[in-house]
């Protein structure tokens, strides 16, 4: 149970980072932390006490494996996270070209 709460604390750290930091790159890092907290939580859900990794090997019987489905889902979520991060880094670089700064308080051509 404690590990789940630690995951939520990690999640909140990420949210804090996104909300509070002014640097675009730090915001992207905060989003990364949020994603990883979610993924960690998802992977932990599949854990069983004393479980072993869900890999079929030649000489071992299949028993007491952890749930493999969350791991597959987390892999998908990581790929999505990769795509989002790459896109956002590219946008951040372009923003730096246009505005000459990473500070979000100075990037304010839009209003309202």
């Amino acid at each position: 149970m404690l590990t789940y709460f630690l995951c939520f604390i990690l999640f909140s750290i990420g949210v804090y980072c996104v909300l509070r930091k002014r640097n675009l790159i730090k915001i992207i890092i905060g989003l990364g932390i949020i994603e990883y907290a979610g993924n960690l939580f998802f992977a932990l859900i599949g854990y069983r006490t004393e479980g072993r990794s869900p890999i079929l090997t030649q000489d071992q019987a299949i028993k007491n494996m952890v749930d493999p489905l969350p791991q597959a889902l987390v892999l998908t979520a990581i790929v999505i996270g990769l795509a989002v991060t790459a896109l956002m880094v590219a946008i951040a670089i372009r923003i730096y070209e246009k505005y000459g700064t990473f500070d979000i308080t100075k990037i304010n051509k839009l209003k309202g």
Partner: peptide, 22 residues
């Protein structure tokens, strides 16, 4: 400039929302 800024804002909020869904 405006489009990039809007897109960044949208992407940040959108991916936080997606994390909640996940």
């Amino acid at each position: 400039a405006e489009e990039l800024e809007a897109s960044f804002k949208y992407a940040v909020m959108g991916s936080v929302g997606s994390s909640f869904i996940l």
